[in-house]
C-alpha cells in the first residue's frame, strides 16, 4: 500500500540528488496516533510523483511546503542514530561514503 512521507530540504531544491541512495530523515504523515513520527532511512527519491512506490512531500527549512509531490522508495530502515554526520539538506549520497 502506498505510504505518504515528508522530508525537510535546506539546500536549493535544484541541488537535491534524485535516483541516488541517500540517508535522510523522513516523517510519516499518514493519519493516526503516530503521524509525524520521524525515521532515518536510506532511500531513493524522485521529482516524478509516480516513479517510486511511496509519496513524498518536500518542506523547506522553515517548514514551507513545496507545491508538487515527489516520490520515494525506502531501501533500508535505519535504526539508531547514525554516528557519522549526515547531511539534512538533501541527504548523503551513499556512493560518496
Amino acid at each position: 500500500m502506498r505510504q505518504e512521507w515528508d522530508t525537510f530540504v535546506l539546500t536549493k531544491l535544484t541541488e537535491v540528488q534524485e535516483d541516488v541512495e541517500t540517508l535522510r530523515v523522513i516523517r510519516d504523515v499518514n493519519p493516526g496516533i503516530r503521524k509525524y513520527r520521524a525515521q532515518f532511512v536510506k532511500c531513493l527519491i524522485s521529482r516524478d510523483p509516480e516513479k517510486y512506490p511511496d509519496g513524498l512531500r518536500v518542506r523547506l527549512g522553515r517548514g514551507q511546503l513545496t507545491s508538487k509531490p515527489w516520490s520515494l522508495k525506502i531501501t533500508e530502515m535505519v535504526e539508531g542514530i547514525p554516528t557519522a554526520p549526515y547531511h539534512m539538506s538533501g541527504g548523503i549520497a551513499m556512493q560518496d561514503e
Binding site: F8, L10, V25, A38, G61, R62, G63, I81, T83, M88
Partner: peptide, 25 residues
C-alpha cells in the same frame, strides 16, 4: 540526554513570533 549525537528538530513557531531557527541536529 545523549552526548555527541543530534536529531533533527524544528522548525517551530517560536516566542519571537516567527519560525526562525531552521531544522538542525
Amino acid at each position: 540526554v545523549i552526548p555527541h549525537v543530534g536529531l533533527e528538530e524544528a522548525p517551530f513557531g517560536e516566542y519571537t513570533g516567527y519560525r526562525t531557527s531552521p531544522r538542525a541536529p
